[in-house]
Nucleic acid binder design. Structure first.
Lengths: 222, 222
DNA sequence: AAGTGTTGTGTACAAGTGTTCACTAATGTG
DNA sequence: CACATTAGTGAACACTTGTACACAACACTT
């Protein structure tokens, strides 16, 4: 039971020495387990180290506990989101297809980093408070960046800063919720995925129609 | 489930015999733990029975495993939601205050059933697939009921059924997301709670402004 | 070349885990 | 009333869990 896995040849030499090797292995292992349907909150140290092919004690060389590992995962999640944003900025050319293309990019990134987004969706509610706040702050950052882009593209000239920020906040939330739809269907179910894509796009369109008529329409109700 | 625990006198006699006594105690115990910050996915049978003041074996008299308990909690959650809907229907009189009042009712119900909604927010992403689907279907039901109400109140006459349904779906999602905001702040922090209330209300207003101008504005982009 | 900190390993242990089993008391049905 | 059913109990099982400790191999500086 101890060395169930060790099909290697010369791994038998006790220790290996790549820089953050084991650390990455542990984080990846946690993500793998999440990807397999486990909930992050239910993962244990031993379980993760087992999945990573590492002895339990090694865990403590890199993390204090599972929450700590979760926090570091949030940081990496931030990188993934920034990559996504960069790609969106580079690829969305005409304004009229802005939403379709953005949603498309989002969906393909989710597919490419399924476990990561699974972890994000899980962390949003529950889990350690720190992880929760981390994810929330990533979303805020995303929303303000989106607002900046819309300003830059002159697509929201009639909105006050506060109203624009609110709109973007709502956009990000809607997309984040679609995330849970997307993660609920199998990655091969192209039909369902397309349904999510269409629905999300229409949500965004509805929101922007609302934004376009915002000031003019409702001002009375505070 | 109603009266959480029973500081009774003559409990010392071995066994008691109320109908679903222990079953309710177990469900309540799970909710209590969730309310204390634990994540449902990380709860164990022994932990729950301990909190309920019951011997571990009793658990199996009522549930096959924790997922089963979760499923039954979803059912009760449905009742809570329906109560909320009924109250909203009874109390929302004038259409112009519709959103403020609805959001208010929502928030007060969340405060009154904090653990329940905590469980719901957690179950939305992650957890057993069955629980996830259950919650999702509760939300769908909620959305269609909302659509019916809006039809009945003649507040959405210019929208097609499909568009109305989409709008209500978006509304429910936005409110559900606000749920996680609300659960993130302490129940005594009235200022923050009011912030959430205002933000959520404005989200809904924005959505309905969009819905009001929907057909006319965007039809081309299918 | 020697020393120093870092990372990984093996062993160990006390607690906690899910589940089974045989038991007992209360309840509802005949 | 008798009796089958149900809902509770305690002891026992085979594991798994988090964490501690002492040690070994490597990567750095000196």
């Amino acid at each position: 039971m101890v060395d169930k896995q060790r099909p290697d040849k010369q791994r038998v030499e006790k220790t290996r020495r790549k820089p953050g090797e084991t650390r990455d292995k542990l984080m990846t292992a946690a993500l793998e387990l999440v990807g397999k349907g486990r909930h992050f909150a239910s993962l244990g140290i031993r379980e993760v180290t087992r999945q990573a092919g590492v002895v339990p004690t090694s865990f403590y060389r890199h993390f204090r506990n599972m929450d700590d590992l979760g926090l570091q995962l949030v940081d990496e999640l931030g990188l993934v989101l920034r990559r996504m944003m960069r790609e969106a900025r580079a690829n969305v050319l005409q304004a009229d297809k802005l939403m379709e293309e953005s949603v498309g990019i989002f969906i393909s990134h989710v597919q490419a980093n399924r476990s990561f987004f699974l972890f994000m969706a899980q962390g949003l509610a529950g889990e350690s408070r720190a992880v929760q706040d981390g994810i929330r702050s990533e979303m805020r950052f995303f929303a303000t960046e989106l607002a900046n882009d819309l300003r830059r593209l002159r697509l929201a000239e009639h909105l006050s800063d506060a109203d624009l920020e609110m709109t973007c906040d709502l956009v990000v939330r809607s997309v984040a919720f679609s995330l849970t739809d997307l993660l609920g269907v199998s990655p091969e179910d192209d039909y369902q995925i397309d349904q999510v894509r269409k629905r999300t796009t229409r949500f965004l369109q509805l929101i922007f129609v609302g934004a376009a008529h915002w000031k003019s329409a409702d001002l009375k109700s505070r």
